[in-house]
Design a protein around this nucleic acid. Structure first.
Length: 563
RNA sequence: UACCCCGUAGUGUAACGGUAGCACAAGAGAUUUUGGUUCUCUUUGUCCAGGUUCGAAUCCUGGCGGGGUAGCCA
């Protein structure tokens, strides 16, 4: 039976609780977030960031940001900068800022130590040969390298020469001497160093040998005196190697704990695929609002609070599941509902003329800014004879349960008047409806009828003479299927790209949005949450991104009717 | 094929040998000047088979299912 006052801790916090009780780390909690600077951070990283920084906060511990920059051929300062920006934007502050490359000399010295202990050797096998010798899953297929039993002196000499640049790239490696027939392939004499001439974003050309992940990561954790080294499930098989290195070195031993990475429906979550989507112009860049990158979500209008809240809700476990995109959308709706000011805006305008409204007259009507926030105040909304309403809000032949405008029907214009549709004017050539003629009831100003009569529907509108035109980008899922990899033989995930993931419309907005700063978020009533695009919006031409639609009960009803 | 990990409503996550709960989704209703929000109610679950035990989602054994791993990537 769980006690509601002490919400249950997930398995990682349970481990930490036990460690604190046993005094394993002297009550210390020190985590780290260790991205490789080879791409932009995505929502999956956000889960790890929230876990690592959040754990440190919970236990009054520390959390470092450490760049795992051991492969200069893929890494770049651009990514370092974006990662730091994203972590801070999410609301976290690191205690230590480090780079694995800070430890290259120490790592080298430790490697020499292992050689002296007879626990590492220089191997002259080619990459193909190494793979062949390490074998397949069957332990019996593992074979010793012919260089495995070189003398310590020779190994020391060769390793020194590797470092000094005496050998070409890829010609030799330093390998740990563990067990060529281990059931765990990671223990079959794993490579510790490779020769690689590439300019490192921080160490330049100082080194031509670079440590592998396994050799760098645990030792970096150890140097920083990390207590709990939290990583994703695919490193589970590496833990014995992680432990082996720190034990052989006799250095401080952090504890690696693995959890399931985040998977979301209707999107992909790999840097390789992101790179491809960007390169092939399926999206406009890493920060395209359709991308599940932190920068994409930020541009889309997501708030750090919503993302943190989402990460909290999905929880932490070792079960490799997939979270419905709906959860993310729900998190941002939940946040924005409370804080986004409301405005009226029409995305697909249909002209409405109020026949009995005086020509040339304009009224200023009071509109509440946010019914969820009494402190948000109110604003003035201009009303006049010619208006625009949403095309979807009129049906010539209304289906059951359609509460909006139709010939002869009366609805409320939000904050304005009751109007009744008298006539739909059509283009004689196409039959398309071009304009509505309506009458209004002057007694219903503000939206209430003194005679107590009710209307079922309230719709949004803008005054034609006062409306601000804006480009509005309507985003939808990047992929049509929940699992983008669900494809026919011979196709790949790109076959599931959603051709309608972006629709651009010219909307008409109420004048109060004029001059809105980039990043400003609004709810366009009855439509969704929108934010001013940070890159493309200008004072002369506003550009809005749709962050997410509102929950739409009518769409659901209508869908049910069509069946 | 070998090793490691994981299986609890549709999804995700609790219950740590003692009444299977929560959130979101779904369905019904109430409220509503947003078909939004909010509120109420309802439906749906321990992968299977044995064993231990007074008692098993939980411990044990064996199946079954899913995931990961054979880079000089991380």
């Amino acid at each position: 039976m769980s006690n509601p006052e002490t919400p249950s801790a997930h398995f990682i916090h349970q481990i930490i609780d036990q460690d604190n009780q046993s005094g394993k780390f002297g009550g210390r909690v020190h985590t780290r977030f260790p991205p490789e600077p080879n791409g932009y951070l995505h929502i999956g990283h956000a889960k790890s960031i929230c876990l690592n920084f959040g754990t440190a906060q919970k236990y009054a511990g520390k959390c470092n940001l450490r760049f795992d920059d051991t492969n200069p051929s893929k890494e770049d300062q651009e990514y370092v900068d974006s990662i730091m920006e994203d972590v801070q934007w999410l609301g976290f502050t690191w205690d230590g800022l480090y780079y694995a490359s800070d430890y290259f000399q120490q790592l080298y010295d430790w490697a020499v130590e292992l050689i002296r202990k007879g626990k590492a050797y220089v191997c002259d096998l080619t990459p193909d040969q190494v793979a062949h010798h390490r074998g397949g899953f069957d332990p019996a297929t593992g074979k010793a390298s012919p260089y495995r039993d070189r003398s310590i002196e020779e190994n020391l000499d060769l390793f020194q020469k590797m470092k000094d640049g005496a050998f070409p790239d890829g010609s030799r490696t330093l390998r740990a001497k563990i067990d060529v027939n281990a059931a765990n392939i990671n223990l079959r004499d794993p490579v510790m160093y490779r020769i690689l001439r590439a300019t490192h974003h921080r160490t330049g050309d100082t080194w031509c040998i670079y440590p592998m992940y396994d050799w760098a990561h645990g030792q970096s954790d150890s140097i920083e005196r990390i207590t709990h080294s939290i990583c994703t499930l695919e490193f589970e098989n590496h833990r014995p190697l992680y432990d082996w290195f720190v034990q052989e070195l006799g250095i401080y031993a952090p504890q690696q704990i693995e959890f399931a990475r985040l998977s979301l429906t209707h999107t992909v979550m790999s840097k390789r695929k992101f790179l491809e989507l960007v390169r092939d112009k399926h999206v406009a860049g890493w920060d395209d609002p359709r991308m599940p990158t932190i920068s994409g979500l930020r541009r889309r209008g997501y708030t750090p609070e919503a993302i943190r809240n989402f990460c909290e809700r999905v929880g932490v476990s070792k079960y490799d599941g997939t979270i419905d995109m709906h959860w993310l959308e729900d998190a941002i709706r939940d946040d924005l509902n409370k804080r986004a000011p409301r405005v009226l805006g029409v995305l697909r305008p249909l002209k409405v003329v109020i026949d009995n409204y005086p020509e040339g007259k304009t009224e200023e009507l009071d509109a509440v800014n946010n019914p969820e926030d009494a402190g948000a105040g109110s604003r003035k909304l201009p009303f006049s004879k010619v208006l625009y309403i949403e095309r979807d809000d009129f049906r010539e032949d209304p289906p059951k349960q359609f509460f909006r405008l139709a010939p002869g029907r009366e609805v409320r214009l939000r904050w304005a008047y009751f109007v009744k549709c008298e006539q739909a004017i059509k283009d004689p050539a196409t039959g398309a409806i071009t304009e509505l003629r309506c009458t209004y009831d002057p007694a219903t100003k503000g939206g209430n009828a003194p005679d107590g009569r009710k209307v079922k529907g309230t719709i949004h509108w803008v005054s034609a003479a006062h409306a601000v035109p804006a480009e509005v980008r309507l985003y939808d899922h990047l992929f049509v299927k929940p699992d983008p990899d669900d494809v026919a033989e011979g196709q790949d995930y790109k076959a599931n790209l959603n051709p309608k993931s972006l629709e651009v419309v010219e909307g008409l907005l109420e004048p109060s949005v004029k001059g809105a700063a980039p990043g400003t978020r609004y709810q366009f009533e009855r439509l969704g949450y929108f934010c001013v695009d940070k890159k493309d919006s200008t004072p002369a031409k506003l550009v809005f991104n749709r962050t997410v639609t509102l929950a739409d009960t009518w769409a659901k009803i209508e869908k049910g009717q069509k069946k």
